[in-house]
Amino acid sequence: MSDVQQAGPKDMRALQSSQLVRNKYENILENLDSGIILFDSEGVLAFVNVQMARLLGVPRTSMAGCTLTQLLRHPGITRFKRKKIIRIFRETVFHRKKNHELVDEYGRSWLITMTYGDQMEGDFLISVKDVSEFKQIEQTAYQNDKLAMLGKISASIAHEIRNPLTSIRGFIQLLRPHLITMGKDEYVRIILMEIDRANDIIYEFLNSSKPSAPQTTMISVLSLLKEVALLTESEALMKGCQIVLHMDEVDETAISVDVKQIKQVILNLVKNALDAMDGDHSHIQGRIEIWASRVEKQVHIRIADNGKGMDHHTLNHLFNPFFTTKEGGTGLGLSVSYRIVRNHGGSIAVESQVGNGTTFMITLPVMDVAQE
């Protein structure tokens, strides 16, 4: 009996130590930023952490003891999530796929990992992690690589194209008097117009790969945006759109920028917004709103429209050179804008949903006029 009595406290201490370790690891799993859910060998939910319950939108207590089928029938699971879960389940079972990527209804990217097999002793572990930031970094790196490649291409061919165009334009000008006498002046006008258009495309092509270094001057944000609104007012009226300018405590805010380049960026965004008013949303009163606000050492310029919006595919390729949804568009305007803003030490971002319009955000460093 004495041996048993002596062993009892040791066993108790070992049990308590084991429980502490288990509680510690359960606490870690509970507070991971990744969603974790575990089904046992019988297909019954054995564990779900706080993040996974939040992602599913279902209270943890109501999931206890559920099978996957019962979970799919839960009233808290949206139709979108139900369809995604079924698709992932099929790919895992029939194609033995253990890693899945998906984009949710809010545009966020998720990496889903399945762990099962002998090492899990029949259990089935699912982890879900938000990889939106990594995708954004990957997209930015991809964008930079494409722009670098575009620069090499443009440097090698642009001048070779412009030189013969210049020669052709000169000879057409020389032939113009003879063609006029033949009643062919309209042909000359069209040829010259098309040559000039080709030159403009080449100019955009060159700028998209390497815009000239900014020639900075001080300008107030208020005057810059007022000028842009004035320049686009007539086109907006013709399209039945309204441009509304909001200024939030930026009267004394100045930015040191290449005025021509930054004006080109803002004009491009406003004209894109005007184009977004055409088509399916033409029956809605078009409205473009421009906000400017100062946040510490930055100025935020937002340009929002109530047009048709963009889907995820368009958003993911929006700043890529030559990507366009416009008939006859070059696909260079936004890639040029991206590079110009970045060369000014700023950033440009976009939010959009189909049917709910689009908002662009330009962020630029500011400088107090009083300090100059």
Rank of each mutant, 00 (worst) to 15 (best):
Asp280Trp: 10
Gln261Pro: 07
Lys226Arg: 14
Leu230Trp: 09
Val244Cys: 06
Asp258Ala: 07
Ile301Cys: 04
Leu269Lys: 02
Gly286Asp: 07
Asn272Ile: 04
Val295Leu: 12
Gln285Leu: 15
Arg294Phe: 00
Ala229His: 08
Leu225Gly: 03
Lys260Gln: 14
Trp291His: 10
Leu245Trp: 00
Val259Lys: 13
Glu235Lys: 11
Glu235His: 10
Glu289Gln: 13
Val270Asp: 02
Cys241Ser: 15
Ala254Thr: 15
Asp251Trp: 01
His283Tyr: 12
Leu237Ser: 08
Lys271Met: 11
Asp248Asn: 15
Trp291Ala: 04
Leu267Ala: 03
Lys297Glu: 14
Leu230Thr: 07
Asp248Ala: 09
Gln298Asn: 14
Asp280Lys: 15
Glu249His: 13
Lys226Ser: 07
Ile243Gly: 03
Arg287Asp: 07
Asp251Ser: 08
Arg287Ile: 05
His300Leu: 07
Glu252Pro: 00
Ile301Trp: 03
Ile262Asn: 05
Ala236Ser: 15
Ile284Tyr: 12
Lys239Ser: 12
Thr232Leu: 11
Gln264Phe: 14
Lys271Ala: 13
Leu237Met: 08
Val299Phe: 00
Glu249Asn: 11
Arg294Met: 02
His283Lys: 09
Leu224Gln: 01
Val270Gly: 03
Val244Thr: 11
Ile262Phe: 03
Leu269Trp: 02
Val270Tyr: 05
Ala292Tyr: 00
Ser282Pro: 03
Ala292Trp: 00
Cys241Trp: 04
Val259Leu: 14
Glu235Val: 02
His283Pro: 06
Gln298Cys: 05
Ala236Pro: 03
His281Asn: 13
Lys260Thr: 11
Leu224Asp: 01
Val257Trp: 02
Gln285Ile: 14
Glu296Leu: 09
